[in-house]
Design a binder for these strands. Structure first.
Lengths: 168, 168
DNA sequence: CAGTATCCTGTCCGATACTG
DNA sequence: CAGTATCGGACAGGATACTG
């Protein structure tokens, strides 16, 4: 997978992701895309945003390599918007966001859930360390400066990689 | 865990989560909190936002039950901001966001990583279905209307729960 | 140090009108 | 149907000044 998101090097990955999915409408458009919607009027009907904003959001999503715009009809030309591979890779992020809210609700209070379409069973997803199976909420996991950290970030982390907030 | 986020019932959980972590500065403040920072000037120095904005962001985080404000000194009174249990439960969401960006980069290009502090090993986290261990990016998983879905969402999903976008 | 108050600019965003 | 163009209000957010 190629990175289409244009950012400077040594940038915090949280900032980069926020630049892509940090806007309210963008997340809802992506949700629509994951549900199989592809067209302008579908997005507008489902989400209820103005056409000018929808145009702007779709453009930046295409520019960021999350969606591709493809004509599905000529004369007059009509486009559909499809998730790229980079865009599809955002699904775990949306899933984690939805799961956070759902975890605060009883199952019968949930307005939207993740399901295994093979069985119809509701899924309560988890973010884990694949090497050990542990949840990343475990206090043993922490953010740290990576190899490409610039001076500000490196100094910020210097000497305090193990100094965590009390987790209980 | 109690839900401190005030939203109407039958609301899309993505919208609710976006209301909490949808703002750029908020995510960076939370990142600081997970790194163990607790004080106003630390946030300001690390993030570089104006004091008025920082005040506003901290207030909404406290109102949403993500942080608690606690005096650590009297005369003059000084506060520290600590993650609540609800706030700590947001870490998997931030982890998933950072992991999305890092997955596009070679290991040596990463400015910030997740580490297992027990071993120092870098972690490449995954969002999975704990029942099967499968990644939620697998096309068998999809969003669907939950029991508390209101009419708009229910009708939107009606009859199309299995109609997914092509995943390849 | 930890904010509060005020001003000012840019941007978000809905509303509306228009086009092929 | 799928947008583009324009307007105007609300608000995000930096800069600055002020307080105990």
């Amino acid at each position: 997978m190629t990175a289409h998101v244009r950012v400077e090097d040594r940038e915090c990955p949280l900032s980069t992701t926020m630049a892509v999915v940090g806007e309210w409408w963008t997340v809802l458009i992506l949700h629509d895309c994951f549900d199989g919607f592809t067209r302008f009027d579908q997005f507008q009907a489902n989400i209820g945003l103005s056409s000018s904003m929808l145009t702007a959001r779709l453009r930046t999503l295409v520019e960021n390599g999350i969606l591709t715009k493809r004509p599905y009809r000529e004369r007059p030309v009509r486009h559909e918007y499809l998730l790229t591979e980079l865009g599809r890779s955002l699904r775990p992020v949306l899933v984690a966001m939805a799961a956070w809210r759902n975890a605060q609700l009883a199952p019968e209070e949930r307005a939207m859930i993740l399901v295994d379409t093979g069985t119809g069973r509701e899924v309560e997803p988890a973010v884990i360390d694949p090497e050990t199976g542990r949840h990343v909420a475990d206090p043993r996991y922490a953010f740290a400066a990576g190899p490409a950290a610039g001076e500000p970030m490196r100094s910020r982390y210097a000497g305090r990689e193990r100094q965590l907030a009390p987790e209980s």
